[in-house]
Amino acid sequence: MIQIINRNLQPLIENHWNHIENHFKNHTNSIRFEDINRLCMKIEPGFSFEMLIKANYQKLRYIKEKIYPRIKKIPNYNKCSEKIKAVYNDKFSKSNSHIGEYNYNAIEFVDNLDISVCPYCNRNYIDTREYNNVKKSGCQIDHFYDKYSYPLLALSFYNLVPVCPSCNHTKATKEFFVSPFDETKKTDDIITFDWEPIDSDYLQSKDDVKLIYKCDMEMKHQFEELKLEKPYKMHNDIIYEIIKKTQLYNNIRLLELKEDFPGIPFNQEETIKILFGVYLDSVDYLKRPLSKLTYDIVKKEVFNK
């Protein structure tokens, strides 16, 4: 799991809510905005439909674990929750439809987040493509808390995780414990990648190095549920290439490059980024596949030496 870090997240949440509010106030009839808002006000003192949509991951987890059974007993729960789920299914999730007055749907939601790679596996690109002036999504939206068990959360911003189709189908309705929107779980703290040689002469082939990973129990559960261990172990070629590059581009060679190209500004971070195809800031992990794996190996082979 790679944490979704967007420094402009709050305006995106406000935009998301504005479209939902507009839709339920002006484009629904069987269930009105006021009906859902009254239901939400019974969840907790001072709560509202707006707070349900904007609730951060910790609040959603609290709702799901502590009070959702009680919410289901509130009059009109079934009609309100099914309407929210229907708006997601019939309007928000479709590329040729939208909610509110403007063309806001799941595609715009993902575009606004400005991430390029699946936060669950960090292997597959998630992108948007345009055919005949119509945008088509290359990703799917996973409901961290599935919309069948928790339909009231079907449009909550922090419950919508853009992922690749492989991860979405594999996760299905399984319960995970580490959300990419969980601000208390930093990517560098919950999973790290490393390697070890299979034999002493490990620089002859990619098959001479072995990928290993370490993570906490919650992350280990998700890694196993997503069946990622085998796919990740296919990428020992990346580890092998990094090890070879550290030998080819040692400090002496880097100094020679700097002297050979005096017109090009050299700094350590930019040089390492170009040579190894790695991002050094966790905010950029979702810009390129396998960025966390690459970073951890480069950190060990370059920075720690």
Rank of each mutant, 00 (worst) to 15 (best):
F266C: 05
N304I: 00
S282C: 07
Q140F: 10
V278W: 01
K185I: 00
I115M: 01
N29K: 04
V178F: 01
K85R: 15
E101P: 09
E82P: 09
I198G: 10
F24D: 04
P265F: 03
F47I: 07
R38V: 12
V283R: 14
E218S: 08
C118K: 02
L203A: 15
I63W: 02
K83R: 13
P45L: 01
H143L: 07
H169L: 12
K59Q: 15
Y62A: 04
Y202T: 05
G263I: 00
K214G: 06
I141V: 14
M51Q: 14
F109D: 08
K66E: 13
L286N: 10
V283Q: 12
Y57H: 14
M219K: 09
F33H: 06
Q247H: 05
K227D: 11
P162A: 02
N6F: 12
G46N: 12
F92S: 01
F176D: 05
S30F: 11
H169M: 12
N103W: 07
S291Q: 15
L280F: 03
S48R: 07
K64N: 00
Y120P: 04
F177A: 08
N103A: 14
Y158C: 06
N89M: 14
Y104Q: 06
F157L: 04
D127T: 12
E183C: 09
P289M: 15
M219H: 09
S95N: 00
K147H: 08
